[in-house]
Design a protein around this nucleic acid. Structure first.
Length: 751
DNA sequence: CTCTTCCAGCTTTTT
DNA sequence: GCTGGAAGAG
């Protein structure tokens, strides 16, 4: 194969790198995926069998994309036998094969974050710890951190450092929660996300022959996004590659944005120490963006201390300057940004798929959604509650999990009384208590009910009925294929019946979701048949457990504006990118502004955001923003100021938002007809750059206020108190209005 | 045991 | 502004 025509020199060098360790530092937009895919193709064309190549990515999406591109180079057959996937899915597969030597069965199920949190909550309760102090989120974070650092519960309890830290945080009992949690997971034959990596490490540590088997099997390793690997992942890679040293890692230290979940930038910085004989390749030419965008991104990232020296450059056109939008309020920000998109799409005849709105937190999506919907602009929103997190979907999945693994405690807890079958909290608590006393799983207690006679006859009867139902499902799951089992479970568990009683739109949508899940099982069955794979429920469940929303792309050809967090935008590109909510305490987030390290990570995140853009970049911030029901007046993000000014177009003064004619549904409701047109009131001009939001108490007759939609106005009178306080305001352009101050966001000129 | 209502906490990002 | 859990009534 000759790729020289399709790759630049440094890309080509990295692709043809024969064997031994290689570190590829790939700047944003420098053709990283290209290098990886060509490198895989190169290996295959050199005669390396596909099943000896292991390629690890961070998201399923990236894995699929790579698979697709490799397939286009070498054909589907070869591409399909590659080991390509996320860390979690690949090692989940391996663990399923090796489960027994670790004391699990092959049918172990996987806890998602919510399952783990529930179990942790439960344990905190059982240990009689104060759940105000032991917040399940924090505790889960600590346990996750420990697992990713390969700290076992025993080691956790023994470590002085950790003890001190927990003590300082006034949570000295976390190690106990961890111990119980780990024991309960094991007893339930389940692994959480972190276990998929931790148990792999335990497997490789305690069973050298197993490790050797995989070392021999995987002759070539490729790792994408190496800067985002955590310690657990790092060690797996290190062990697997120890025999052949054929490890090629690709990454960009400037795009490391996952340290909050244990990713270690050091892994990429220390590659040279782990493999002194390594070759280094740097991809520094950006093919994605204009020189303006690359220049701006460079000027920002240059402020970080910790980095591998490199100079990202672009030979593309200079392009437009970056536009900064300063909006008076969060609502107006969304109106202006969407207008910007609307106009560009109309004037330049661009379709909506060429635009992306990127924000720091998912919560910011709502306002943009509202405005997009009003203007009838199609959009696709990523993140938020995914399909697999919906209650009804999780309920059915819990039944399916139980059918495969009856010890799965969270699944049991979820459905033992859903739909209602008269097994209440008291009974469930008792079952768990007995399970704990005898150190067995809750299911085991159900199987030996007759040994416990403190149950009323009615309760015992209900429990037996439930047990028999699950046993039935379980027997079926052993013998039959996934789809018939799933359908049977949906019907005879009573879920479908329960949902069909509900004719509200939500109820209908829940039913549809259950159907959708059944369709997914069917699709899985069909795919399994085509690929000659085993069509088992167990396999379906383990695939689904590691899926996220972004993986279920619905094919729909309407071009849509993309809305997502900056995190999930990593790896993507769009002709026009709007980065919104650029305010202190939001982006950079509050949690990070006090630590230099975290601030550098936020800056990298901002860098990632900027480098998603190909042609045009729009940044926006608002002067007032509602957060958790409270009004705030944030300062513009320091990151805007960190862009060398020559890349930014001259700042336009804040403008009155264009009217779309139907904004503020809330106000429409509270507007009252005001009797007899009051005499026109003189309303002076307002200097929009000096506006500050007003608290309801500060609004008194006589002052001049500013409203996002109605413009400047004079307060005539105020009535009511508290949440009912209303003001009668005369607006220069719109006449008199009565506004409920709880909703109306009025501002005034600063003194 | 079930249903309703009220309150707190949440908003950093994801496999 | 929403969701999940607690608490209280039936």
């Amino acid at each position: 194969m000759d790729f020289s025509g399709e790759l630049n020199n440094s890309q080509l060098e990295a692709v043809v790198h024969a064997s031994g360790p290689a570190l590829v530092i790939a700047g944003a937009g420098s053709g990283k995926t290209r290098v990886l895919t060509y490198r895989v193709a190169q290996l295959l064309s050199n005669g390396v069998p596909a099943y000896r190549v292991l390629a690890l990515t961070f998201t399923n999406k990236a894995a699929r994309e790579m698979q697709r591109r490799v397939a286009s180079l070498v054909g589907d057959m070869q591409a399909a036998s590659l080991w390509m996937g996320t860390f979690h899915s690949i090692f989940g597969k391996i663990l399923r094969v090796e489960a027994e030597i670790l004391g699990y069965t092959r049918d172990f199920t996987i806890y998602d974050a919510q399952d783990s949190r529930n179990m942790i909550k439960q344990i905190i309760k059982e240990l009689k710890l104060d759940d105000k102090i032991y917040k399940s989120n924090d505790v889960q974070g600590r346990i996750s951190m420990a697992k990713n650092m390969l700290i076992t519960p025993e080691a956790y309890a023994l470590s002085d450092n950790i003890r001190q830290a927990d003590k300082a945080a006034r949570k000295p009992a976390i190690h106990e929660v961890y111990r119980y949690y780990a024991a309960r997971c094991k007893k339930s034959n389940v692994m959480d996300f972190d276990d998929l990596l931790l148990q792999t490490n335990i497997l490789f540590r305690d069973f050298p022959d197993v490790l050797e088997k995989y070392q021999r099997k995987f002759e070539y390793l490729l790792v994408d996004e190496y800067q985002d690997t955590n310690y657990s992942q790092y060690l797996i890679i290190k062990k697997l590659s120890a025999l052949h040293h054929n490890i090629c890692v690709v990454g960009d230290d400037a795009q490391s944005i996952y340290s909050f979940r244990g990713a270690r930038l050091e892994n990429i910085l220390n590659f040279k120490n782990d493999y002194p004989e390594y070759s280094l390749y740097k991809l520094e030419q950006n093919y994605r963006s204009t020189t303006t965008i690359v220049g701006a991104a460079n000027s920002v990232i240059a402020r970080n201390q910790e980095q591998i020296p490199k100079e990202l450059f672009s030979r593309n056109e200079e392009g437009e300057k970056i536009k900064v939008i300063r909006a008076l309020s969060d609502r107006e920000e969304s109106v202006q940004v969407v207008n910007e998109i609307y106009r560009a799409a109309r004037d330049e005849r661009q379709d909506y798929s060429r635009f992306a709105i990127l924000y720091r937190t998912n919560a910011q999506s709502r306002l943009f959604e509202e405005v997009l919907r009003k203007l009838n602009i199609p959009y696709r929103i990523y993140g938020g509650t995914s399909f697999y997190q919906r209650k009804e979907v999780k309920d059915l999945l819990a039944y399916l999990r139980l059918a495969v693994n009856r010890e799965d405690e969270e699944a049991l807890r979820r459905v033992i009384n859903y739909p209602r079958r008269g097994i209440g909290d008291t009974t469930v608590e008792m079952l768990r208590e007995i399970a704990r006393l005898h150190d067995v799983s809750t299911w085991n207690v159900l199987e030996n009910l007759d040994r416990f006679n403190q149950l009323s006859a009615a309760t015992a009867r209900r429990l037996v009925a439930f047990r028999e139902m699950i046993d039935g499902f379980s027997a079926m799951a052993r013998d039959e294929e996934a789809f018939p089992v799933a359908r049977h479970v949906a019907l005879s568990s009573g879920i479908v019946a329960d949902l069909s009683g509900d004719s509200t739109p939500e109820g209908v949508s829940r039913r549809e979701n259950v159907e959708e899940l059944l369709n997914a099982v069917k699709a899985f069955s069909e795919a399994a048949y085509k690929e000659n794979n085993e069509d088992r429920l167990a396999r379906f469940l383990s695939e689904i457990a590691l899926l996220t929303d972004q993986d279920n792309e619905k094919s729909d050809d309407t071009p849509k504006v993309t809305l997502m967090t900056v995190h999930s935008a990593k790896g993507l590109e769009f002709p026009t990118v709007c980065v919104v909510g650029l305010e202190e305490a939001l982006f950079p987030s509050v949690q990070s502004v006090y630590s230099a390290e975290n601030l550098e990570e936020e800056r990298r995140l901002f860098y990632v955001a900027l480098t998603r853009a190909e042609k045009r970049l729009i940044l926006s911030h608002a002067l007032t923003r509602y957060r958790n029901g409270e009004i705030t007046s944030p300062r513009p993000s320091r990151f805007i100021g960190e862009i060398t000014p020559c890349f930014i177009s001259a700042p336009a003064p804040a403008r009155v938002p264009p009217r779309t004619g139907h904004e503020h549904p809330v106000q429409a409701r509270v507007e009252r007809r005001v009797e007899a047109p009051v005499e026109p009131v003189e309303v002076g001009d307002v200097d929009l750059t000096r506006l500050r939001p007003l608290l309801p108490e500060a609004i008194v007759p006589g002052i001049v206020v500013y409203h996002d939609v109605f413009g400047a106005g004079k307060v005539l009178s105020v009535e009511g108190t508290g949440g009912n306080r209303k003001a009668n305001v005369y607006f220069g352009k719109h006449g008199p209005k009565v506004l409920l101050l709880k909703f109306a966001r009025l501002s005034a000129e600063k003194e």
